[in-house]
């Protein structure tokens, strides 16, 4: 590989173990190339959520290194926090129930000091504007800012959470099973939204998922993780189109698909 674009975020041979437990990650290397969505695929207990926590700087690897823009990741670095934002699985747990959506979405702006210095009123106005813009990008009306989380449906909550993640203008979104808690019809729309944001906002989406359909729709690259190790990685088209590892093949065969459903018979 020559002249590959530099990775924004990369794990280099990382290992991790919870206190007194077996290692959950062993010598895992993945890298996030700008513009190429990356999928971390695997089943429960594979270690993919732990890997995401390392990439988010919420935990330190026991061995190996996590790199942001080529340098060792520093979780206190505001540039890093601004550039890498998470989206969670459960939209009921990811929004503070006692704050209005506007405050929730503007939190990164205030905490990261992204508002232009000026009077309190001017800053508040700027925040409101940028919140409205973020809400618009995720397909929510501007008056959503005044509502509390419980006044939204599950899909709308996930949109609020995505608005919070993009308001700081990040380069990478790390999404942990972002649609698995949603109904099917909502799921399609949130997948479309994430795909659209990748194009319009230039963010690279990293998706942790067990759902290969979501992966195929959103990510150019795929890493398959089984019991803490990457067993296969490469372009999604190659990994899913011509899987070389038996585990990948088994995963692929297990996905329930209408196109293969037993009870539908030949068209």
């Amino acid at each position: 590989m020559t002249a590959a674009p530099a990775a924004v975020l990369a794990a280099h041979e990382v290992g991790y173990a919870y206190r007194g437990g077996r290692p959950v990650l062993e010598e895992v290397s993945v890298s996030v190339t700008p513009g190429r969505g990356l999928a971390l695929v695997g089943e429960s207990g594979a270690g993919k959520t732990t890997l995401l926590r390392l990439l988010l700087g919420l935990a330190r690897p026991a061995s190996g290194r996590v790199l942001f823009d080529g340098a060792e990741l520093n979780p206190r670095d505001r540039a890093f926090r601004r550039a890498v934002q998470p989206v969670f699985q459960d939209p009921y747990s990811s929004l503070d129930p006692r704050r209005r959506a506007g405050r929730i979405v503007s939190e990164p702006l205030r905490s990261l000091g992204l508002l232009a210095p000026g009077s309190r009123a001017a800053r508040r106005e700027e925040a409101a504007e940028r919140v409205a813009e973020a809400l618009r990008s995720v397909g929510l009306p501007a008056d959503a800012a005044r509502r509390y989380p419980h006044e939204f449906s599950g899909g709308q909550r996930q949109r609020v959470a995505i608005a919070r993640a993009i308001v700081s203008g990040p380069r990478v979104l790390l999404a942990d099973e972002p649609v698995s808690a949603l109904d099917v019809t909502t799921r399609v729309r949130v997948v479309e939204l994430l795909g659209g944001l990748a194009e319009t906002h230039g963010v690279t989406v990293v998706v942790v998922s067990h759902d290969l359909a979501v992966v195929a729709a959103l990510c150019a690259d795929t890493a398959v993780i089984e019991r803490g190790r990457v067993v296969e990685q490469g372009r999604t088209a190659d990994v899913l189109g011509a899987p070389s590892h038996p585990y990948t093949r088994r995963l692929l065969d297990s996905v329930p698909r209408l196109s293969r459903a037993a009870r539908l018979g030949p068209p």
């Binding site: 099917v184 088209a237 698909r257």
Partner: peptide
């Protein structure tokens, strides 16, 4: 129809990559 369309839409890309 919206249920069926959503299901097809979700697996569409997967069907294309790995028929």
């Amino acid at each position: 129809r919206s249920l069926v369309d959503s299901a097809w839409a979700l697996e569409g890309e997967l069907d294309r990559l790995a028929p």
